[in-house]
């Protein structure tokens, strides 16, 4: 074989070997590590202390503006008359019932997968607030249904799936507090929250999948709204206000929970130190 041909063959062979050699796998991205940076209680308290007023005050102002606008200044509906004003309570409450559960499911995922130290507390603090907003959604819906449908309740898909959501919230509230070991309660609650998340698409699409007495979706994130602009604006403002108030309540409860955990740890360490001295 001529010398030049040999050189070309060697180069090609080495190139082939290099090309086909197994590449060392890149180090897995430490998502949990990055998230844990924000799990430091001191850092969380400092950050949340700055954020909380920016959630609470705009939330209170927007909620008040949306509700007053909806109650006193928005036009009556051509078909439902004045009763349509319940929309400005019912829809934001329904939105927060679903969004709150989505937040609960995300916190549960962080808790189960990455063992995020604050995720357990966040889930435990979201569920009672979510249950309250879901109850508001159900009761305001009944108050709307009584004069419009002639009944307080029907077992149609939308109402029933939201009632299931309410029970999921209550189940989570009870489950995380049902064990002597809080860690077991958090794990059980996280599993329940993740399984229950299947209810969210059912709620959303229930008015399309089944023939329901409940009306279809009036507003959409991707399509045109079926609400007239004079009704849409107060609804959007009230919805934004409810969202901020919900976030403020959960943040305040979470701050209190972090402080309470610190208090328990301090008291326990003092009691142990006193036992050692004795």
């Amino acid at each position: 074989m001529p010398r030049r041909l040999q050189i070309v063959a060697v180069i090609l062979y080495e190139g082939f070997v290099e090309f086909t050699a197994p590449v060392a796998e890149p180090a897995p991205r430490r998502v949990g590590g990055r998230l844990h940076r924000f799990a430091n209680p001191g850092r969380f308290l400092r950050l949340s202390g700055r954020v909380l007023p920016w959630l609470a005050w705009p939330g209170a102002i927007l909620t008040a503006a949306g509700l007053v606008w909806g109650f006193a200044f928005s036009p009556p509906d051509w078909q439902q008359g004045e009763t349509v004003r319940i929309l400005y309570v019912h829809v934001p409450a329904a939105w927060m019932a679903s969004a709150g559960y989505a937040g609960l499911a995300v916190a549960s995922l962080f808790s189960l997968v990455w063992r995020h130290p604050l995720a357990d507390l966040a889930a435990a603090e979201i569920s009672p607030v979510g249950a309250g907003f879901t109850a508001l959604c159900l009761v305001s819906g009944s108050l709307w249904g009584a004069p419009e449908w002639g009944t307080w309740w029907v077992w149609d898909a939308r109402l029933t799936s939201v009632l299931v959501l309410f029970f999921l919230y209550l189940g989570h509230v009870v489950l995380v507090r049902a064990f002597d070991n809080p860690e077991r309660g958090y794990r059980a609650g996280a599993i329940l929250a993740l399984i229950g998340a299947v209810d969210l698409p059912i709620i959303h699409y229930s008015v399309q999948w089944w023939n329901t007495l409940h009306q279809g979706n009036s507003i959409s994130l991707i399509g045109p709204s079926r609400l007239y602009i004079t009704m849409l604006w107060p609804l959007l403002i009230a919805s934004l206000g409810f969202t901020l108030v919900f976030a403020a309540i959960v943040t305040a409860r979470l701050r209190a929970a972090v402080m309470e955990r610190r208090i328990r740890a301090l008291l326990q360490s003092r009691a142990e130190a006193a036992e050692v001295v004795a």
Binding site: V89, H90, A93, L143, W144
Partner: peptide, 9 residues
């Protein structure tokens, strides 16, 4: 009904 819904909220 309307007042009750707002009061509850």
């Amino acid at each position: 009904y309307i007042v009750a819904a707002y009061a509850l909220a």
